[in-house]
Computed example of a mutant assay.
Amino acid sequence: MSSDIFAIYGASGCGRGVMPLAREKLRSRHVPLDHLVFVDDHPVSGVINGHRVLGFSDFLSIDAAQRHVVIAIADGGVRENIAQKCIRNGVGFWSVVADNVVVMDDVVLGEGCILSPFVTLTSNIRVGRHFQANINSYVEHDCFIGDFVTFAPGVKCNGNVVIEDHAYVGAGAVIKQGKVGKPLRIGKGAIVGMGAVVTRDVPAGATVVGNPARLINRK
């Protein structure tokens, strides 16, 4: 009888950082480690860190009961395109959550998320599909995070914040707490630069940098 196979989609730095977390997650479920692979659209090596690297078509050709991927690519738009390709080909999604992640009260996570070590989600939070939170990031109370949002390491998202689809928040950025009934909003596809301190709404498609964060580009 065929078994399920699991994959990290993306064999670059992000994917290699997620693989050890995925390995531990599957080991605890007694899944053989040869059932965990990398998938990459442009594989440059047959094996990375002890795991096979397959092109997508090769992944589809493996005899498996079901196929599951988690997409470890920082660009939210690329992540969405890959997710749509997986759906068209009957590939499901799984989430990778580090053992020391803290999730408190009334937190709802969408499918395909990656929560790296030392991430904290406090209370009354809604998170969309394919969210990536890198090491030492947090999301405080009463936040809404859309689909395909990316947090680089050390992001501090305080309470009453709305982050729309495809937004990217750079390493060490701080997002000021919003107000009840008037959350601070980061628009769809916005980019918050490394170390920025966001004190007001960020328009969709905008790039902001600095302390306090200022607009440097807007699509």
Rank of each mutant, 00 (worst) to 15 (best):
Val78Cys: 00
Arg79Phe: 05
Arg79Met: 08
Arg79Lys: 15
Glu80Arg: 15
Glu80Leu: 09
Asn81Val: 02
Ile82Val: 08
Ile82Phe: 00
Ile82Asn: 02
Gln84Phe: 06
Gln84His: 12
Gln84Val: 07
Gln84Tyr: 07
Cys86Tyr: 05
Ile87Thr: 11
Arg88Phe: 08
Asn89Val: 04
Phe93Val: 04
Trp94Thr: 05
Trp94Ile: 00
Trp94Ala: 05
Ser95Phe: 06
Ser95Asn: 05
Val96Arg: 03
Ala98Tyr: 04
Ala98Gln: 03
Asp99Ala: 14
Asp99Gln: 14
Val101Cys: 04
Val102Ala: 12
Val103Cys: 11
Val103Asn: 07
Met104Gln: 14
Asp105Lys: 13
Asp105Glu: 13
Val108His: 14
Leu109Trp: 07
Gly110His: 14
Gly110Arg: 12
Cys113Asp: 05
Cys113Ser: 10
Leu115Ser: 02
Ser116Gln: 12
Ser116Trp: 02
Pro117Gly: 08
Pro117Tyr: 06
Pro117Cys: 09
Thr120Glu: 14
Thr120Tyr: 06
Thr120Leu: 11
Thr120Met: 15
Leu121Arg: 06
Asn124Trp: 03
Ile125His: 00
Ile125Tyr: 04
Ile125Lys: 01
Arg126Tyr: 10
Arg126Gly: 12
Val127Asp: 00
Gly128Thr: 03
Gly128Ser: 08
Gly128Met: 07
Gly128Cys: 08
His130Leu: 00
His130Ser: 06
Phe131Pro: 03
Phe131Ser: 04
Ile135Ala: 14
Asn136Thr: 12
Ser137Tyr: 04
Tyr138Ile: 03
Tyr138Gln: 08
Val139Glu: 01
Glu140Leu: 10
Asp142Pro: 09
Cys143Ile: 01
Cys143Asn: 11
Phe144Gly: 10
Phe144Gln: 13
Ile145Phe: 12
Gly146Trp: 01
Asp147Cys: 07
Asp147Trp: 02
Phe148Glu: 02
Val149Ile: 01
Phe151Leu: 13
Phe151His: 15
Ala152His: 02
Gly154Arg: 06
Cys157Asp: 09
Cys157Lys: 09
Gly159Met: 10
Gly159Val: 07
Gly159Pro: 07
Asn160Pro: 11
Val161Glu: 11
Val161Cys: 13
Val161His: 08
Val162Pro: 01
Val162Gly: 01
Glu164Ala: 12
Asp165Trp: 03
His166Cys: 00
Tyr168Leu: 08
Tyr168His: 12
Val169Asp: 02
Gly170Asn: 03
Ala171Asp: 09
Val174Asn: 08
Ile175Trp: 06
Ile175Asn: 09
Ile175Val: 15
Gln177Val: 00
Gln177Ser: 13
Gly178Cys: 08
Lys179Asp: 13
Val180Tyr: 09
Val180Pro: 11
Val180Trp: 04
Gly181Cys: 09
Ile186Pro: 04
Ile186Asn: 09
Gly187Phe: 10
Gly187Cys: 12
Lys188Val: 09
Lys188Ile: 05
Lys188Met: 12
Gly189Leu: 00
Gly189Glu: 01
Gly189Met: 01
Gly189Trp: 00
Ile191His: 08
Ile191Pro: 04
Val192Tyr: 04
Gly195Tyr: 05
Val197Gln: 11
Thr199Ile: 14
Thr199Val: 15
Arg200Met: 06
